[in-house]
């Protein structure tokens, strides 16, 4: 599940994403494109790649990706201990 202590995560809703890759241009340090164009987390546990860890310094850029994703497939999830 999404929501990790003391860190923001960027959640990808795979049922909405169509893989045109705008987000991967906005936060290329966090997301690469796979061979079909879909975003793929560059680091972290492979099994948890629907929830990408966002360092504090990249929060604003991740927020831009959330706002600009044409399919509303991205969501920033606050740290569980900040709720």
């Amino acid at each position: 599940m999404a929501g990790t202590p003391n860190r923001y995560t960027l959640h990808i809703d795979w049922t909405k994403c169509d893989g045109r890759g705008l987000c991967t241009e906005l936060i290329p340090d966090l997301l690469a494109r796979d061979k079909w164009g879909y975003p793929i987390a560059k680091t972290g546990d492979p099994a948890a790649r629907s929830n990408v860890a966002v360092p504090g310094s990249r929060l604003a850029a991740a927020g831009d990706a959330v706002d600009l994703c044409p399919l509303l497939a991205l969501k920033l999830i606050a740290p569980t201990d900040a709720r």
Binding site: W14, T15, Y38, A47
Partner: peptide, 8 residues
């Protein structure tokens, strides 16, 4: 390996 963790 590339599809792991990348679905609903």
């Amino acid at each position: 390996e590339s599809v792991v963790g990348r679905g609903s």
